[in-house]
Amino acid sequence: MRSSSLFLVGVLLVACATENGGDQQGSSGASDGGAGGTLDDGSGNADGDCLTDGEELALGTDPNAVDSDMDGVSDCAEIDCVSDPLDTAEVCYACGWKHNDPGNLVSTGATEGSTIANVSLIDQCNEPVNLWDFAGEYHILYLTAAW
């Protein structure tokens, strides 16, 4: 007999039709930066990471800190994995999923045409994952059960 508490959700990306959306921090224009330049013209790199001071100012990150939100993951790593470098509670997913929750979604119900709730799930890397982090692309949820 199937237990109703054993559902598994497979999030299948439908590659034939996608839209860009979400945080989209992955293409920030980050550069190697490097020493030289000054904070005034934005070309300097006070903390020596992958972002120039100008890029850090544009992003809101701290030009003098490799890890602006001090969550243990560098700004550059968080940008690469599409995680918010200014959100202490958000770090890269171990499985590599993007944090694509645009931050403005509101659940409107459980019927077709509604915005689904931001369900908390657990992925195959044994990490909590929020369903809205898969926003920005078309998906098909494949719903099955484990016994």
Binding site: A110, E112, G113, T115, W132, G136, L141
Partner: peptide
């Protein structure tokens, strides 16, 4: 369930 990019069902 087919989901739109804005998480509409």
């Amino acid at each position: 369930c087919a989901m739109a990019p804005d998480m509409t069902i």
